[in-house]
């Protein structure tokens, strides 16, 4: 076989191998599901299995809306998606999404943001 075709096929195989390897990386979905247990009555049992890895990773907006409604049902505040995550983290006392790199924010930025959210939610 011609070298170029071999390289072409090898390139495709490497990319495919990487995609397969990445697809086996899972977030700790149990952690999130535990955290979301109080939400089940609100969301309905049919939605218990709603949280897939993709939803967790991109913090699906439907999850965000439900979370917001439960956490701050009658509070007239605008919570961002990041606010919600940070708030949940704060309640959980540990990072919610292990691979998320929003924690690359400086310590002061992060703590300021958390304090701001808590102040608004209270």
């Amino acid at each position: 076989m011609r070298p170029v075709l071999i390289l072409f096929i090898a390139t495709i195989l490497i990319i495919a191998a990487k995609c397969i390897a990445l697809s086996s990386i899972n977030f700790d979905v149990d952690e999130v599901t535990t955290l979301m247990k109080p939400l089940v009555p609100v969301m309905g049992s049919s939605k218990v299995g709603f949280f897939t890895n993709e939803d967790v990773s991109t913090y699906n907006h439907e999850v965000y809306l439900e979370v917001k409604n439960v956490l701050v049902p009658n509070v007239d505040v605008e919570m961002t998606q990041l606010d919600t995550i940070l708030l949940l983290e704060n309640k959980q006392k540990k990072p919610l999404f292990p691979m998320a790199d929003y924690r690359t924010l400086s310590e002061s930025e992060n703590s300021t943001h958390r304090a701001y959210i808590l102040k608004r939610v209270k």
């Binding site: 390289l7 090898a10 490497i14 191998a17 990487k18 990445l22 990386i25 990773s57 991109t58 691979m99």
Partner: peptide
Amino acid sequence: FAMSVFFYFHASKY
């Protein structure tokens, strides 16, 4: 091909 090798070692899922 070199780019795909770099991709293999450095790509992140999200």
